[in-house]
Every structure is written in C-alpha cells, then in structure tokens.
Amino acid sequence: MREQPLFRRRYDLSKMVMGSVVIGYVLLLILLPIGQLVHSTFGQGWSGFQRALLNPSALFSMKLTITLALLTAVINTVAGTISAYVLVRYPLPGKKILNAMVDLPFAIPTAVSGLMLLVMFGPKSILGGALQAKGIEVVYAPPGIVLAMIFVTFPFVIRSVQPILEDMGVEMVEAAKILGAGRWQTFFRVVLPTILPGILSGFTLTFSRALAEFGSVVMVAGNIPYKTQTAAVFIYGEIESGNLNNAGTVSLLLLILSFLLLFYQNYLLNRQRFGWWQRLLAKAGMGRKGKNSEFENWAI
C-alpha cells in the first residue's frame, strides 16, 4: 500500500489563496458587472426589454454595426493574409520597419485614429474634396465607419497568420511542387489549409473588435441616427439622454454576440487543430476527376 500525503493535499494553503484571488478577481471585475447590466436592463421587466429591442433606431444601429463589421472583417482578412504572406515570404527592403509599423493601429488611441481619417477624408482635404466632388461621401457616412474599423483592426489577421506561415517554412510548398502541384494547387491544397486556423482566428478577432469600436467611429462618422449610428455610438447616445433601458438592451445584444464569438474562437477553432472545414477545403481543392472541375479550372 502506498502512503498518501493526505494532510498536505487537503490543506494546500497557497493553492487555496491563489485560487480565491483568481475567482474573486473574475467575480468582481467581470461577472458582477455583467450581472448588474442584465439586472438593470430587465429592471422594467421583459416588456421593457422587448420594447427597447424593437426600437427601430436600436435595430438599425445593430444591423449597421454587424454589416459593416462583417465587411471590415472580410476586407481585412484578404488584405491581412496577403500582407502576412508578403512579410514572411518576400525579401522586401525595410521589412523590419514595415513589420513594426503593422502594430501602429494598436498603439494609437482610437480617437486619434479617427481624427487622422477625418482630416484626411474631410471636405477640406484634397482627397476628401475630390471624392466629394464626385459625389462619394466618406466622412459622416458608412464608408468612413468602415475605414475607421479597418484601420483599427488592421493588425489582427496579419498577426494571427504570420506565425503560422513562419512556422510552416518552405518545405511543404517545395514538397508539393516536386509532387507535381502547380502554383495555385499548392496554394489551395497546401498553404491555405495550413494557415486557415490563423485566418479564421484573425477574422473572428477583427469582427469582434470592429463590432465594439467607438472612438474612431464617432470621430469620423458622428452620431447620425439611421445613417451612421453604430451600436456602440447608440449606447453612448442613449446614456447621454438618460435612456438606460435602450442602452442596456443593445449592450446585452453586443455582449451575447461577443460571447458567441469567444466561444467559437476558443472552443470550436481550437478544439481540433485541423477541423472538418480544413479537410473539406483540402478535398475540394483536390478535385477528383470530373467533380469540382470548374473549381479546378479556375484554380489553375
């Protein structure tokens, strides 16, 4: 029989203290405020929540935010993946400086980012004036919001794809070439499936960050209901006018969306390093004879 160090195991003081600290921290800083938000929102009962939810300007702001954030995520995912590829694979002069500059949008206060865009695309600037002359609205319009969101979330996809590309090395690509695969086949069958987790993770991060963006958006696009009022701006406006119920309801919706994204990011994406979607992609890229031939033609 083995002797069990029962005593030590039961009363590991440091473990208990550390555990309590972490639990207390999470409770105090995260769970309690969330609980309070839920409590306040339902302060006027379910009907108040329903009324706020069906409030057309609240609905508009939610729709606008989700649409523009999705657009931002798509644009930045494509641009970010290409940028990461170039940064890792191509010998560029001044690559180190370029690489360091990628992080700038994270370092700049969002209000400053917004101001920069405002100055650049405002009616008084050359670019802004020219665009306005052609009838293209940027500032105080949805394109301005997308620009702000793109600017603020620019690093996410690059920084999540870059390490995977670096880690991947060139051997897999070389192996594919020797086995007869052309440039496009190599990209779709080998490179893309390998970096897909990074792309998806970058997409999710970009999307959730764009959903939440306030400072730069309000600076570039202002607070025009039914035109440029995003969810975060809406919440701010409702608080300003003392309408806690509306603010709380939209906040709760954003919160639920964030939870879903977080769940997706942490659970679905990381549960299996190479999930079904990747295998599907690899298979689709493979294209058996006859099947998927259109894709094949397009890919090569």
Binding site: E171, M172, A176, T194, F274
Partner: peptide
C-alpha cells in the same frame, strides 16, 4: 524534416 502535409 519530412515536410508532410500536416492537415492531411
């Protein structure tokens, strides 16, 4: 390092 396709 074999360079196997990790996702296959």
């Amino acid at each position: 390092n074999y360079a196997l396709f990790k996702h296959m």
